[in-house]
Every structure is written in C-alpha cells, then in structure tokens.
C-alpha cells in the first residue's frame, strides 16, 4: 500500500475530528470552550493543508497552513482581550 493511498483516508479522518469538535461548539458551557474548538479547527486545518500540499504537489498550501496557525493564535488572543475581560476590567 503506497504512502499516497493513505493520504485521503488521513484527511477524511481529520475531517471527522473537525465534525466531532463541532459538538463542543454546540454544548460548550462557557465561551472559552467554543474558543477551544476553534483552536482545534486551526490545528486540524494546518494538518490537512500540509497533507494536501503533499498529495496535490502544491507547495503554496504550506504557506496557507502557516497563515492558519498564525490566525488561530490571533483569534484566541483577540477573544480573551475583547470578549472575555474579567468583571472588573475597564473595557
């Protein structure tokens, strides 16, 4: 079984992970849980893009993966700073 035969299955498996992460978005009691699942989406997207960059032989996808990793971090920090200030926060 060649390596490239594994890639579609691996990508499918990661997509299934993503769908499972959606459940936490629905039921997450606090806003932080929903933010955690977006972190999971970010990392899974990086993995998926890296796999697709290899199978599709499109090196540009690796740069997209880099941007995804960066954006995931920025969204989380923006979430904590803007939405989730502690009660006595001034903003």
């Amino acid at each position: 079984m060649t390596i490239d035969a594994v890639h579609p299955w691996l990508a499918l498996f990661l997509l299934a992970n993503l769908l499972a992460g959606l459940w936490r978005v629905l039921t997450g009691p606090t806003a932080a849980d929903r933010m955690l699942s977006t972190q999971l989406f970010g990392t899974t997207a990086v993995a998926l893009l890296a796999i697709e960059a290899d199978t599709r032989a499109m090196p540009a996808l690796r740069d997209v993966a880099l941007v995804f990793a960066l954006l995931a971090a920025i969204t989380a920090v923006a979430f904590v700073r803007r939405v989730w200030q502690p009660r006595e926060g001034s903003k």
Binding site: A32, V46, L66, A69, L70, A72, A73, V77, V80
Partner: peptide, 30 residues
Amino acid sequence: VGAKLFVIWCLVLLASASVSHVIARAALRR
C-alpha cells in the same frame, strides 16, 4: 520542505502554548 514543515510545527507550538496560557489565566480570573 522538511525544514518548512518543522517551522510550521514550531509556530503552532509557540502559538498554542501562549494561547492556552492566556485562556487559562482569563478563565481563572473569571
């Protein structure tokens, strides 16, 4: 390409370490 993938991994490590610290601190404060 292997080096580029390694750089991606380092960025994800740094990002998720700092993000989890920030979120945990905010959660504790709340």
